[in-house]
Design a protein around this nucleic acid. Structure first.
Length: 639
RNA sequence: GCCGGCGUAGCUCAGGGGUAGAGCAACUGAUUCGUAAUCAGUAGGUCGUCAGUUCAAUUCUGACCGCCGGCACCA
C-alpha cells in the first residue's frame, strides 16, 4: 500500500510502503536530515524514526522550529538523568519535563546533591552528547514495564505506570545504557542536543507537588539551540539580577527589612514618598470612578472572622491577639472585606444606593509561611488597593466592565501596556448551583468582552464561592506578574447577613465584587522598581531634580532655583558640596535622579540652567523660567 | 512549613584553631574644578546568636535565628 505525504510547501511525496521521517528528511535533502529533530504527522509531534503508514501531512521539525526548544529541553532532562544514574547509581528517576527556559528532573536519593555534584553531572552530560547515543522508542507491556522498574528499585516510575490509564501505550526511551519511561517524542540521538545547556541549581520539590509526599531533589537546567543562545539567556539573568528590587531598594535608600520585623517593611523617606505618590494616584483614580474610601479596624474579635468563615479557612495564617487572659481572641485583619460588610450593614440600604463602591488602603497582616517571604514582594504586613463593590446581581456586568476600563487606564499610566486577562472558573470544591455558576461565569466573560479585552480561561481556578478574573501584566524584561483581580462573591453577604431593600420592598442579598488593581502596594512597588530598573517615571521618583553646583560661586543661585522648583511642587535636592561635577553627576546618576540641574558661573549670570536627563545623559542649557515650566509640567501625575 | 546553600566593616568580598584583611562608602584636611570616581590621611568588626569540643573557636560540632534559590502556600 503506497503512502503519499504532503509537505508544508504543498508538494507531494509518494512511497511504496511505510516510511520513516528519517528517510523522508534524507530524501528531501542532506541538510534537512542533519537539522531534523522530530516531525509533525497530521499535527501530532512524533519521533523521526516513526514509520508513517498512511497518507498524511508531514512537517519535519528542525532546530529552527518553534517546538525545537521544547524537544531539546526534554532531551536534556533525559541526558541529565542518564548522567546522574551513571555517576550516582541507585538514584531513582521520577519526572523530568521541559519548562520555560529549560528543564528539570526530580531525583530520589538520600544524599543531597551538592553544587560540586552539578558540575560533575554537567561534565558527564557533555560526554553523553559527544558519545552520540542513538535514542529509540520501545513499546512495553504494562506489567512487564512495572516489574522492570520495580526490579531496578524505581518505585516512582512503577507508580507512574500504575496511574497511566488502561489502553494507553507504555513507551520507553532507550539511549545508551539508560532507559526511561517517557511519552516522547525525542531527538534521534544525543548529539543532536548540542552543548547549549547548563545546570543551574538544586532544590527540593515534593513528589507530585503535594507537601504530604516525600521531598525529592530537583535539578534545574537551562537549554537552548546553541551556546550563543545559552549565553544570551545567562546575560538576561544577569540583567534581572541588576534590577532586583531588594538591591535597588537599598541602593536608592527606599526601604529595608531587618530581623526584628521579618516580613514587614521599614519604609525610608524616599521609599515612602514613592509609596504615597502611588497611593494618592490610585486614590484620585478611584474617586473619579465613583468609589468612596473608608477605614476599618485593625483588630476585630474572632467572632466576626468565625462568621465570615475566614477563621476556619485561614485561621492558621492569621495573627491572633488573646485578651483578658484568653477569654477573648482578636484577629489582626487579614483582609478588609468583613469590615466593609459591617459598614454596609449600618442602617438600611436601598436598591437606589447600589452600587456602593467601598475602597480602603487598609493595613492587613497574614502570617505567611517563612519560605514564602521575598523582599517587599511577599510580606506579612501589606496594604492592598482594595475595594468591594456591593451591587445587585444585574449590575455585575456593568460594574465588572467599568472596573476593567479603570484597570486598563491605571496600567497604561504606570507603564504597562501589555497584560493578559484570565477567567478562572468553577473549582471542584465549590458552593452554589451549576446554574448560578453558569450565570456568574457568563457575566464575567461578557463584561470582559464588553470592556474590549480578550481573555483565556483557567479551568477550575476560581474561588470556592465564585469565579474570578485575574490580570497578569508583563514587565520590561518579559516576566509576568498577577496583580489585578476581580472576584464575584455572593457567599460573604450571605454569611454576614448583608441585604438591601429592592424596588418591590423585599429584602435582597447584594453581590460583592472583591477587586484590586495593583494588588499589594508593597509588591507592586517591587514590580515597578524592577520594571523600570529603578529609573522611575518622573512623577513617581522620590527625588525628581537634583540641583548641583560646579563651584561655590553658584551656591546662592542654586538655592534660589531649588526654592522655585519646590514652589512648583517638585521634589528637589541640592548638592552644594565642594566636589567635582563629575563626581556629583556620577553619584546622582547612580541614585537614579531623573533630572539634574547643573549650575556654574555662566548659568548664574544668565539666569539659565543646564538641564541633564538621567537616561541618555542629554543636556541642554535653557532659561530658568522655561525649565520651571517644563519640569513642573512633566512631573504631574497622570490625570 | 519542607529541601539545599549562605551569614566576616555601611556595601561588595577575601581569609582561616593562636581574638581579622581589601576595594568602595564614612570621617578629617587640601583642592573651586563644566557633565559618570581629585588627592592625602584617619577611623571602623563580640566574624548572625547560643551552646559544645579545645590550653585557645571567628575558624571544628550542634541547635536556633535570618537571608538566598526552589517546593508547598498566597482569602
Amino acid at each position: 500500500m503506497s503512502v503519499s505525504l504532503t509537505l508544508p510547501d504543498g508538494s507531494l511525496r509518494s512511497y511504496p510502503g511505510p516510511v520513516s521521517g528519517t528517510t523522508l528528511a534524507a530524501d528531501i535533502g542532506p541538510g534537512l536530515l542533519k537539522a531534523a529533530l522530530a516531525m509533525r504527522v497530521d499535527g501530532r509531534l512524533v519521533d523521526l524514526a516513526h514509520e508513517i503508514d498512511r497518507d498524511a501531512k508531514v512537517e519535519i521539525v528542525t532546530r529552527k522550529s518553534d517546538e525545537a526548544l521544547d524537544l531539546l529541553r526534554h532531551d536534556c532532562a533525559h541526558v541529565m538523568a542518564e548522567a546522574v544514574q551513571e555517576l550516582f547509581p541507585g538514584t531513582q528517576v521520577t519526572i523530568g519535563p521541559s519548562i520555560e527556559n529549560g528543564f528539570y528532573y526530580d531525583f530520589a536519593r538520600d544524599e543531597p546533591f551538592t553544587p560540586d555534584d552539578l558540575a560533575v553531572i554537567e561534565k558527564r552530560m557533555h560526554e553523553i552528547v559527544d558519545r552520540d547515543e542513538a535514542i529509540s522508542r520501545e513499546v512495553w507491556d504494562r506489567d512487564e514495564a512495572a516489574d522492570f522498574f520495580l526490579s531496578k528499585g524505581e518505585i516512582y516510575k512503577a507508580e507512574i505506570i500504575r496511574d497511566i490509564p488502561a489502553g494507553e501505550q507504555i513507551s520507553l526511551y532507550r539511549q545508551g545504557g539508560f532507559i526511561d519511561l517517557c511519552l516522547g517524542p525525542h531527538l534521534p540521538s544525543t548529539a543532536k542536543l548540542g552543548h547549549g545547556f547548563k545546570l543551574m541549581k538544586v532544590a527540593g520539590a515534593y513528589w507530585r507537588g503535594d507537601h504530604r509526599n516525600a521531598m525529592l531533589q530537583r535539578v534545574y537546567g537551562t537549554a537552548w539551540r546553541d551556546e550563543k543562545e545559552l549565553k544570551d539567556y545567562l546575560h538576561r539573568l544577569e540583567e534581572a539580577e541588576r534590577r532586583d528590587h531588594r538591591k535597588l531598594g537599598r541602593e536608592m535608600d527606599l526601604f529595608h527589612i531587618q530581623e526584628e520585623a521579618v516580613g514587614s517593611i521599614f519604609w525610608h523617606a524616599k521609599g515612602w514618598t514613592l509609596y504615597r505618590a502611588l497611593e494618592n494616584y490610585i486614590r484620585r483614580k478611584i474617586e473619579a470612578d465613583g468609589y468612596e474610601e473608608v477605614r476599618t479596624p485593625q483588630l476585630i474579635d474572632s467572632s466576626l472572622f468565625i462568621a465570615s468563615g475566614h477563621w476556619e479557612m485561614y485561621g492558621d495564617n492569621m495573627m491572633k491577639v488573646p485578651l483578658e487572659e484568653g477569654k477573648r481572641t482578636l484577629g489582626v485583619k487579614p483582609m478588609n472585606c468583613p469590615g466593609h460588610v459591617q459598614i454596609f450593614k449600618q442602617g438600611l440600604v436601598s436598591y437606589r444606593d447600589l452600587p456602593i463602591r467601598m475602597a480602603e488602603f487598609g493595613c492587613c497582616h497574614r502570617n505567611e509561611p517563612s519560605g514564602a517571604l521575598h523582599g517587599i514582594m511577599r510580606v506579612r504586613q501589606f496594604v492592598q488597593d482594595d475595594a468591594h463593590v456591593f451591587c445587585a446581581p444585574e449590575q455585575v456586568v456593568e460594574e465588572t466592565r467599568k472596573f476593567c476600563r479603570l484597570l486598563e487606564s491605571v496600567y497604561a499610566d504606570l507603564g504597562f501596556d501589555d497584560f493578559q486577562v484570565v477567567l478562572a472558573t468553577r473549582p471542584e470544591k465549590r458552593i452554589g448551583t451549576d446554574a448560578e455558576w453558569d450565570q456568574n461565569e457568563g457575566d464575567l466573560a461578557a463584561a470582559i468582552s464588553a470592556a474590549g479585552m480578550s481573555y483565556t480561561v483557567s479551568e477550575g481556578d476560581g474561588a470556592f464561592y465564585g469565579p474570578k478574573i485575574e490580570f497578569h501584566l508583563r514587565d520590561a524584561i518579559g516576566r509576568t506578574w498577577q496583580c489585578g483581580t476581580l472576584q464575584l462573591d455572593s457567599l460573604l453577604p450571605q454569611r454576614l447577613d448583608a441585604s438591601y431593600i429592592a424596588a418591590d420592598g423585599s429584602k435582597q442579598r447584594p453581590v460583592m465584587l472583591h477587586r484590586a488593581i495593583l494588588g499589594s502596594m508593597e509588591r507592586f512597588i517591587g514590580i515597578l522598581i524592577e520594571h523600570y530598573a529603578g529609573h522611575l517615571p518622573l512623577w513617581l521618583a522620590p527625588t525628581q531634580v537634583v540641583v548641583a553646583t560646579i563651584t561655590s560661586d553658584a551656591d546662592d543661585y542654586a538655592e534660589e532655583v531649588a526654592g522655585l522648583l519646590k514652589a512648583r511642587g517638585l521634589r528637589v535636592e541640592t548638592d552644594l558640596r565642594n566636589e567635582k561635577i563629575n563626581l556629583k553627576v556620577r553619584e546622582h546618576s547612580l541614585a537614579k535622579a531623573p533630572y539634574m540641574i547643573v549650575l556654574g558661573r555662566r548659568e548664574a549670570e544668565n539666569r539659565q540652567v543646564a538641564l541633564r536627563t538621567l537616561l541618555g545623559g542629554k543636556q541642554s542649557v535653557i532659561d530658568l523660567t522655561e525649565a520651571l515650566d517644563k519640569l513642573a509640567g512633566e512631573a504631574l501625575p497622570p490625570a
